[in-house]
Design a protein around this nucleic acid. Structure first.
Lengths: 252, 252
DNA sequence: TTTCTATTTGCACGTTCTTGCATGTTCTGC
DNA sequence: GCAGAACATGCAAGAACGTGCAAATAGAAA
């Protein structure tokens, strides 16, 4: 196994789970723990992770994610959500992924050996996927909105209209059992609606702070959500409301 | 087996698997590992892959390589070219910028206080511009080509057809006074042609190694070039040919 | 075809890199 | 504070590497 390959796999695992254990990696790769420790030391030196006793944890991705990763605190939590979310994927599927830091984390967590077709209007997601050799990637162009890191507008909508997907990873929004899925921006909401319309199922992965909140623009009803990926500590009462409307709950 | 044939097979394998092993390729092709190493060295020099101990991995086309010292000179030279190229810009202009590392350098070099409208099909250029507050940015979507870091295809062409620009920064191509501007990829050439058609002027910034070279697909004649940005050490004889056909030469 | 030249290839050599082990040190949980 | 795990460091074996050189090969010229 190539050193570089090991490094990549460790980074994948860091993106998916937020942490790695030296011993576990050693047995997985079939190398000594010393070698793993050397790898982790180098990755830490390059800023890809932070070394801790027993392994390493994901570092705040400054350089890796130039766009729209504002929430630096919840990095590890988002990586955990992402790891659970990508477990929903299977080979050959077609996905819509829109913007938001959680969706960037999900894009990073997608295994490199998984064959997928993905369309996204997020520059961050596209960048994260640009080194996944088996992903057929379509960039949905349009007017670039700096604050969101995504493309919106008529061109974006026209491109979406020509596509259909198995799953739509809907990100960065308000989420309320009665008001449904909502967005902060009109044009953004329009794009999300178009993606939702052309998808067989919607997946939403959220941290607790998004639960039971709402934004001005409505995207879809809560009953449109097929998979809801949440933290272990999410309030059961809120989740029950979504579950009643047909959502499948996945705990990260 | 022909050298070019081997190179192509290696590139195919890199595209499919993201990595290759020197020993594996040697036995597969029936040549010595030395030959394979030479191949990998050349492919790496051409930017098609990154050399690692034991083999090579697919190159990240537009990823900034701050650590790599190998291309240190080229990076510095490209930054100098970029600085000269952005001096051609003035407030309120509309630009097309396509892919290539030189264009990413140019995008980075654009002053943050300059008001511009820019359309690009390059993920790297878009990322570089995503923190320029006064740039109105349009992402030209389409099928994403990993090797180029750009979007191509019918969607891209359709989006370009709706736009017009003052200047087109045409990147990463072969450049010859008689054969004109050429590209390595058919779809890429098509996009460049569309951008050229809808632009009032073409700007090309090249390092010396691109001068007097040609690729299979023709994009435009040498007489279409309005501004040619070159290194100070560029051969005067070659430049004279371009100047005769109407290009304005700018030394970085 | 034959000859000449330029390129490619394989081999030998010395060098560099990676890796696992041994050693001694540091950290964590009890 | 103690025991054990995790760690850093030094070291040696082996693999991978680059380079110089000669043989082999391809392509052009005669």
């Amino acid at each position: 196994m190539l050193t570089d390959q090991r490094h990549q796999l460790i980074r994948d695992r860091l993106a998916a789970e937020g942490r790695v254990l030296a011993g576990e990696l050693a047995s997985r790769f079939g190398v000594s723990e010393d070698t793993v420790r050397r790898d982790l030391r180098e990755l830490a030196k390059a800023g890809h992770c932070r070394r801790v006793y027993g392994g390493a944890v994901a570092a705040a991705p400054f350089a890796a994610a130039p766009i729209g990763l504002r929430g630096g605190h919840a990095v590890e939590e988002k990586a955990r959500l992402a790891g659970t979310a990508v477990a929903l994927l299977s080979r050959g599927q077609t996905l819509f992924i829109d913007g938001g830091s959680t969706n960037v984390a999900i894009a990073k967590a997608i295994p490199r050996d998984l064959e997928l077709t993905i369309a996204t209007n997020s520059l961050g997601v596209a960048s994260a996927l640009s080194d996944h050799p088996l992903v057929e990637l379509t960039m949905l162009g349009g007017r670039f909105v700096r604050d969101l890191g995504t493309c919106v507008g008529a061109d974006t909508l026209a491109a979406i209209a020509q596509l259909g997907a198995d799953l739509f990873f809907l990100g960065s929004c308000g989420l309320d059992a009665s008001r449904g899925v909502t967005a902060f921006d009109s044009a953004e909401a329009e794009v999300k609606r178009a993606m939702a319309k052309n998808s067989a199922g919607i997946v939403i992965a959220v941290t607790n702070d998004k639960l039971a909140t709402a934004a001005p623009y409505r995207v879809a009803g809560a009953d449109a959500i097929r998979h809801l990926v949440v933290e272990k500590t999410a309030p059961a009462a809120i989740l029950a409301d979504f579950e009643r409307q047909g959502a499948e709950i996945h705990f990260a």
